[in-house]
Simulated scan of single mutants.
Amino acid sequence: MSDIWKPSVTVAAVIEREGRFLLVEEETSDGIRFNQPAGHLDPNETLEQAVTRETLEEAAYDFVPTALVGMYMARYVSSRTGLEVTYLRFAFCGELGREHDRPLDTGILRTVWMTREEMLACQDKHRSPLVLRCVDDYLAGKRAPLSLLYTHQDAAHA
């Protein structure tokens, strides 16, 4: 076993429609929590491909990322196992496509649309403090072009 520290790379979709944000309600080791459609970067995919895939799997929507809202680092300690994980989260905004009639990913209970105020009122039920931070950064107009991200051809297969 390696003693090399390795953060977990995750992606998240910040999706706003008419003043409400798309969240998923999910079962976690710490109970039922709210999160953006989000998940881990899989082998052989780009960050953009990962956020598109995760949005489809968790929320049953097509999603095309158009900008990077932010890059975040946070430490999480499981209340159940006591294990510590550091996450690097890449949050994207973009265009929401059509909704599909398909089952949601394992552990996802439902999708919900919430205003920022509704999110603030239930922040103790967020998967992490990054959920609200990503929305606040989005509302503040933080955007970076996707051209900021580069994936070498050996790292991902299109």
Rank of each mutant, 00 (worst) to 15 (best):
S2I: 00
S2V: 04
P7Y: 08
V11F: 11
V11P: 00
V11M: 09
A13V: 02
V14K: 03
I15W: 01
R17W: 02
R17Y: 00
R17N: 11
R17L: 08
G19D: 05
R20Q: 12
F21K: 01
F21Y: 15
F21M: 07
L23P: 07
T28E: 04
G31T: 07
G31F: 01
R33T: 12
N35G: 06
Q36V: 06
P37F: 03
H40C: 01
H40I: 03
L41D: 08
P43F: 06
P43L: 05
E45L: 11
E45S: 08
L47N: 10
E48S: 12
A50Y: 02
V51P: 02
V51F: 09
V51D: 10
T52R: 13
E57L: 08
E58H: 04
A60F: 08
F63N: 03
P65Q: 05
T66D: 00
V69K: 00
M71D: 05
Y72D: 04
Y72L: 09
A74L: 13
Y76H: 15
S78D: 07
S79H: 10
R80C: 00
G82D: 07
G82N: 06
L83K: 15
E84R: 14
T86S: 12
Y87L: 14
Y87V: 14
R89K: 13
R89L: 15
R89V: 15
F90K: 02
F92V: 04
F92R: 03
C93H: 06
E95I: 11
E95P: 00
L96R: 13
R98G: 04
P103R: 11
L104E: 13
D105C: 00
I108K: 10
L109Q: 14
L109S: 07
V112K: 10
T115G: 01
T115L: 04
T115C: 07
R116I: 05
E117F: 02
C122P: 00
D124V: 09
K125W: 01
H126A: 14
H126W: 03
H126S: 11
R127F: 11
P129T: 06
L130C: 01
L130I: 08
V131C: 08
V131M: 04
R133Y: 01
R133D: 01
L139Y: 01
A140K: 14
A140Q: 13
K142V: 10
R143H: 06
A144N: 10
A144L: 14
P145K: 11
P145D: 13
L146V: 06
L148H: 09
L149S: 06
Y150V: 15
